[in-house]
Nucleic acid binder design. Structure first.
Lengths: 176, 176
DNA sequence: TCACATCGTTAGCCTATCTAGTTAAATGCA
DNA sequence: TGCATTTAACTAGATAGGCTAACGATGTGA
């Protein structure tokens, strides 16, 4: 979400718009607040685990995909995080040094590696996140059933809008 | 939002939960997707304006608050961005060098400064953002009126949850 | 008036990124 | 087969944006 542009927060809205426009504005404002709370949470979480947000995101990605068909390689991680392979290499150095990740040989391609999370990383992430996920699910369940679809549609529409919006210049290609 | 933890995406949910649990999971998943789309959009936007995301956020903050009662000072900016005053000073150096911001004397406190956006910054930001805001408002208006309050409540509850969550366990005593 | 607080800035450091170049392995082609 | 190209990961060195500490100028309260 964006920070408030002037007319987002100010009087203008209330002065002449319909009631339902008002509630639409409030919906946007709530979206913005959620966005920033999420951002903040990530930061707190990563500092509490004594790493930066990229490293935490990497850790989560590895854990989330470890029992997937396609194993996580440094390259795949790089693509997900949108950083270069070189940066990923250093990231892996950090996270192996801290005992969160390990590099294992790739079963089919001896040029490559697969990246796995240690037991310690698992428990650390699970401690902090699994409870949170359940509580988020509770919150989602608290939305009255008929409104859930509408809320979902709203968020997906917003996502799609943001995904297709504002690519004025070329996408900068990344290395391999 | 979090990347998917294994059980978020997998079969488990569909197998034995109620229908409305299913739709709650979908709501969470939509939330996650929105979150990441927003993140991506910010990045695209800042690189397309040839600055980092912090600088862009600063620029938006200044523009958003320029006709507010309390003028934007370097300190206020620092608090909003959650960086130190020193870093803010450098940030202002960058953004004045690039012609986006200017430092003006503070009317009442001669120790302080007020930060104002140049005409160039205004047009650049407005070009990229004003249309987007209106479209987001359209999307919010497309949510059926009765569901809007529920969606708003959901997002606010999520925000509140994230705001109060996850500073819990102190540094896990891993060696050192 | 004087001690102290506050605001912005400068100086110097640290770290996470980048680019460029290297090595090893896989792949494609004559 | 054997050679050229592509691909994966890594290393070395540079850069940028953050930090802490210290400082001058200004405001403020006893």
């Amino acid at each position: 979400m964006t920070e408030a542009l002037p007319h987002e927060e100010a009087s203008e809205a209330r002065s002449y718009w319909f009631d339902d426009a008002d509630s639409a504005v409030e919906l946007l404002s709530a979206t913005r607040r959620f966005r920033s709370a999420d951002h903040e949470m990530r930061r707190r979480m990563s500092t509490s685990m004594d790493m930066n947000t990229t490293d935490l995101s990497a850790l989560r990605f590895v854990i989330a995909h470890e029992q997937s068909d396609a194993p996580v390689t440094p390259l795949r991680l790089a693509q997900h995080l949108q950083i270069t392979g070189a940066s990923t290499s250093k990231l892996l150095d950090r996270l192996t040094a801290s005992g969160h990740l390990e590099r294992a040989p790739h079963p089919h391609d001896r040029r490559s590696r697969i990246v796995v999370a240690t037991a310690h990383a698992h428990s650390q992430v699970r401690d902090r996140l699994s409870g949170m996920h359940e509580q988020m699910l509770e919150i989602a369940r608290a939305v009255p059933a008929p409104a859930r679809q509408a809320a979902t549609d709203f968020l997906l529409a917003m996502a799609e809008h943001l995904e297709t919006e504002a690519p004025p210049r070329e996408l900068t290609p990344r290395e391999g």
